[in-house]
Simulated assay, not measured.
Amino acid sequence: MPKMKSNSGAKKRFKKTGSGKIKRKKAFKSHILTKKSSKRKNNLGKDTLVHKSNEKSIERLIPYS
């Protein structure tokens, strides 16, 4: 059976943690930053985990990560 292909966009956006969960970046940090508070911008810069309901579909996109 041939290897499955990883989704190129998903490869760039998601990483697996040591425990097998999927890590992602937060949105809304790229522009229109003047009206956002420093606290909000700081929190948007941090990584977070993908929600449990989306994990299975993302794991299909990155089978070998």
Rank of each mutant, 00 (worst) to 15 (best):
K5I: 10
K5F: 07
K5Y: 03
S6Y: 00
G9H: 08
G9S: 09
A10C: 05
A10Y: 05
K11N: 02
K12I: 07
R13T: 02
F14Q: 00
F14L: 06
K15R: 10
K16L: 13
T17A: 08
G18D: 00
G18R: 08
G20K: 04
G20E: 01
G20R: 03
G20M: 05
G20L: 07
G20V: 07
K21W: 03
I22G: 00
I22D: 00
I22M: 02
I22T: 02
K23T: 02
K23F: 06
R24F: 04
R24M: 12
R24G: 03
R24V: 11
R24P: 00
R24H: 08
R24I: 11
K26S: 04
A27N: 12
F28D: 15
F28Y: 13
K29G: 10
K29M: 11
K29W: 09
S30C: 09
S30Q: 12
S30P: 07
H31V: 02
L33I: 06
L33Q: 08
L33G: 05
T34W: 06
K35Q: 10
K35C: 06
K36S: 04
S37Q: 15
S37C: 12
S37T: 15
S38Y: 10
S38I: 07
S38N: 15
S38W: 10
R40W: 13
R40P: 10
R40F: 12
R40T: 14
K41R: 15
K41D: 09
N42L: 10
N43R: 05
N43Q: 14
N43W: 12
L44V: 02
L44P: 02
G45T: 05
K46M: 04
T48R: 01
T48G: 00
T48C: 03
L49G: 06
L49Q: 04
L49Y: 02
V50H: 00
H51T: 08
H51S: 14
S53C: 12
N54P: 01
E55F: 10
E55W: 06
E55P: 00
K56M: 11
S57C: 09
S57E: 09
S57N: 10
I58W: 01
R60I: 15
R60A: 13
L61R: 05
P63W: 14
Y64F: 13
Y64G: 01
